[in-house]
Structures are given as C-alpha cells and as structure tokens.
C-alpha cells in the first residue's frame, strides 16, 4: 500500500502494475549512481516514506477515534440500574462491595459518555441515586431551582435530583470525567498478559476521604484495573486537580492583563515607563464669552461641526441629507 502511493507521488507516470513488479524504493536511487544528487534523492525518498508513514498513523488514529463502538446492550443497562446487589448495612456508596465495584468498572469501560448519562437517567427513572453503586433513593426537590445555604450557589433541581447527595454526584461525575477524557490501557484478553490484549478505557472509583476500609476498595479496583499503578492514579488525580487550577491560572492571567492595561505595577507592561503627562493650564485674561452664534450657516452645524457632504449639495439640512437618494447609491441595490 505504501509502496504504491510513494510511486504515484513520484513524477514518473507509469502503469501501476509495472511499477509494482519492480522492487520499489531500494532500486530507484541506486540506478543513477554516478550523480552527486543521488544522496539528496535518497533522502527525499526517505522523507516521502516518512511522511507517508506519519500520514498513515494519523489516519489510523482518526479511524480509531471515529470508529463506532457497538451500542451497549439493554441488559447491561438493566443490570447496572438494579445495582447495588450487596446488602445496604455493611456496604454503601462510599464503601461498595468489591464484586459490585468491579462489575461497574468493567461494564462502564465500553460506555460512551452519552450512554453513561443514559444510565444515570435510567436509574433516576427507578427513583434511585444516579451513582451506580449507591443504594439510596435520589433527592426529590420541588421547584425549578435550589439555593445552597452553605455556599450560596444556585442549582437546577433537575441536576440535584439526579443524586442522593453531593458526595454521590462527585463520585458519579468522577467516572464521567474519565469517560470523557479516556486514558487507554491494554488488558490481557486471555489472562496471559500478552501485549495483544484489548485497549480499554481506564476507570477507577473516587478516593473516599478518611476511610478505614481503603484496602478492600483498592483491591476491588485492582481486580478491575490490573495495570492501574499508583503512579497512573496520581497522574489522573493531578489532571483532575489541574482542571481546578486552570481556572485559577486563567483568573490570574485576566487580572494581570487588566493590570497591564491600567498600567499598574505587576502587569505585563510593568517594566515600561509610563508616558509623562503634565497638565498646563492656559492663562485666562478676559471675561468668558459664549461662542458666537452669528457665524454664517451656524444653524446647519451639528455640535459645532458643519457637515461637508451637505454643503456641496447646496446646504441641505443634515437630517434631510441623511435621507437623500444620493446617499443610498453607496449601497449595492438591485433595481428592476
């Protein structure tokens, strides 16, 4: 495939079949050996081949991105909307049973972000909290909006009613972020750990604050994510934190740009000296007089300025002039 395209890129237009029968790139630079430019033609051929390979890689990458995954079967939705199966007293959203956690993580790997939203919707239809590992019912606030008394934020009740609590919203959205910005890992299909495994989205549950049962949960994560090392997890956490930091950086940048505009020290143009401005008052030596109205044509003036366009047309009133036909001719009009 690549040989064919490199051939066609060359200026020699020959039959494709003939070209293919000859060994391609190796022979051609060798055929004119005495010329000094042979090395440059070789590099050009190599360059072409390189570009070719890069283009092919890009194409493959694009194909993988645009490749449509098969839709998630309904049974998976039904199963996940029934979760959790583990009894509530020992397990809850912050401490899910390992079996449920690994089931959720392995099933969600194939989900598109939109399908994950469908799952939340499906759970809400059943009156459950949108987070797949939460046994509690969702909130049922009335009305359109709700004001948080703690932070003073306003939220849509349709958003709030998806979850049983803010903690569950965080847990569920933590998974959504990972689906939106997927990191891929290779899993061994046969359990042999061979590199020929399937590429899947790496997923993990949100770390719980101050939990004593941490070991049980991380083991569940490890079961579902065999290659998820602590380092990778830290990277993800950093990426998540960066989303927040980016907001601050942007705010700082904006502030410094504004400061620069004002010329405050600390702005981007802080080092530059300002233009010196000295204010000189002109001496007043006579009584103040209003501007004379007696000047000829003063009635045509607009705030002390006499429009010139109208003067040429015989001193029309400015308002009339604006409506005159001549002015319309500046615009392109179609007349039938």
């Amino acid at each position: 495939m690549s040989a064919e395209t490199t051939q066609s890129a060359r200026p020699k237009p020959k039959g494709i079949l003939k070209q293919l029968s000859a060994p391609p790139t190796t022979k051609q630079p060798a055929s004119p050996p005495p010329r000094a430019s042979s090395s440059t033609s070789l590099t050009r051929a190599e360059l072409l081949a390189q570009q070719e390979a890069a283009a092919r890689l890009r194409l493959l990458e694009k194909l993988r991105q645009t490749e449509l995954k098969p839709p998630i079967p309904l049974e998976t939705f039904e199963l996940l909307s029934q979760l959790p199966r583990a009894p509530c007293p020992p397990h809850d959203a912050s401490n899910p049973s390992p079996a449920d956690a690994s089931l959720v993580l392995t099933s969600l790997r194939d989900f598109q972000p939109s399908e994950y939203l469908d799952l939340i919707e499906e759970r809400n239809c059943l009156g459950k909290c949108g987070y797949a590992l939460c046994p509690r019912p969702r909130r049922t606030h009335e009305g359109g909006f709700k004001i948080s008394t703690r932070s003073g934020n306003i939220a849509r009740t349709t958003d709030l009613n998806k979850w049983c609590s803010d903690a569950c919203a965080l847990r569920a959205l933590y998974l959504k972020v990972q689906l939106d910005n997927p990191t891929y890992e290779r899993i061994s299909s046969g359990g042999s750990g061979a590199p020929g495994g399937r590429l899947v989205v790496k997923l993990e549950l949100r770390e719980e604050k101050g939990d004593g049962s941490r070991k049980s949960r991380t083991s569940a994560v490890a079961a579902a994510v065999p290659r998820g090392s602590q380092e990778d997890r830290d990277q993800l956490a950093q990426a998540m934190a960066k989303l927040e930091i980016d907001k601050h950086t942007q705010a700082r940048k904006d502030a410094s740009a504004l400061a620069g505009e004002r010329g405050d020290p600390g702005g981007s143009v802080a080092g530059l000296s300002r233009v010196d401005v000295t204010i000189k008052e002109s001496a007043v030596d006579g009584p103040v007089e209003p501007p004379s109205n007696l000047a000829k044509g003063a009635e045509y003036m607009v705030e002390g300025y006499r429009p010139k366009a109208n003067k040429a047309r015989g001193g029309k009133q400015p308002e009339e002039g604006a409506e005159s036909d001549g002015e319309d001719d500046e615009f392109f009009t179609v007349r039938l």
Binding site: L74, F77, E78, S81, E121, E122, N124, C125, L126, G127
Partner: peptide, 8 residues
C-alpha cells in the same frame, strides 16, 4: 408519573 424507563 415519573419518567419512563426500560422496565416500564
């Protein structure tokens, strides 16, 4: 009266 899911 709530929204309709798969099961319904």
């Amino acid at each position: 009266k709530s929204s309709i899911g798969i099961s319904v």
